[in-house]
Simulated scan of single mutants.
Amino acid sequence: MSPLSRFTLFRPILPGSTLGQRLRACLGATIGIGLTGLACALLAGQGPHGLWLVPPMGASAVLLFVVPTSPMSQPWPVIGGNAVSALVGFAVAQVVGEPALAAGLAVGLAIAAMSLLRCLHPPGGAAALVGLFAAPSATLWFPLAPVGVNALLMVAAAVAYHRLNGTAYPHRAIAATPPQAAPPESRPSFSAQDVDAALDELGQSFDISRDDLERLLRAIEKRALARAYQDLACRDLMTKDVISVGEDASRQVVAALLASHDFRSLPVIDREHRIAGVIGQRELAGTGTYARDLMTAAATTTPDAPALGLIEQFARGRVHAVYVLDAERRLLGVVTEADWLAVLTRGLEMPAGATPDAPRHTASTISR
Rank of each mutant, 00 (worst) to 15 (best):
R223C: 07
P12L: 10
Y169P: 04
M238G: 00
A102G: 12
P123C: 05
I220D: 07
S189C: 14
G347E: 05
H273Q: 08
A112C: 12
T355G: 14
M114S: 04
P56D: 01
E328S: 06
V343R: 04
S137I: 14
E283H: 01
A91P: 09
E349D: 11
L216K: 13
A91D: 06
T302R: 13
V254K: 01
V54Q: 03
L294D: 02
P48R: 01
V278Q: 13
A106V: 09
V95D: 02
A276M: 10
P356E: 06
F10C: 12
R271D: 12
L117P: 05
A138G: 07
A315F: 11
S2Y: 10
L14P: 04
G125E: 00
T30A: 15
A39R: 03
A128L: 04
A138C: 14
V54H: 01
A173D: 11
A86Q: 06
C119W: 04
G37N: 10
L258A: 00
G32A: 11
D212C: 06
A173I: 02
A226D: 06
I243T: 03
F65H: 05
V130S: 00
G353P: 14
E98F: 08
T239N: 07
F90S: 06
A39I: 10
S60H: 05
E221H: 07
A110H: 08
H171Y: 09
E312H: 13
A297L: 09
A126F: 01
V242Q: 05
L9V: 13
D207M: 15
R163S: 08
I111Y: 10
S244I: 04
G166C: 03
R11N: 14
W76H: 02
P15T: 02
R163N: 03
L294F: 05
S2N: 15
I174C: 13
L344R: 15
L266N: 05
L38H: 07
P359I: 05
A182F: 07
L129Y: 00
G28Q: 05
L87K: 07
P99I: 11
G166I: 00
T287E: 15
E349R: 10
P3E: 14
G286C: 15
S60F: 02
L284P: 12
A228L: 12
G347D: 12
A197I: 08
I33D: 06
A276I: 00
M238L: 03
A224R: 15
R223K: 14
F65C: 02
A44E: 00
M154N: 02
R368Y: 10
I111Q: 04
M1P: 15
P3W: 12
M350D: 07
D211S: 14
A285Q: 14
V78C: 08
L284I: 08
V78R: 04
K240G: 13
G37H: 07
A103S: 15
V147A: 08
Y290P: 07
A157M: 14
H320S: 13
Q193S: 14
A352F: 11
P15Q: 04
A233G: 01
A342E: 11
Q180T: 10
L87Q: 02
A93V: 10
P68K: 02
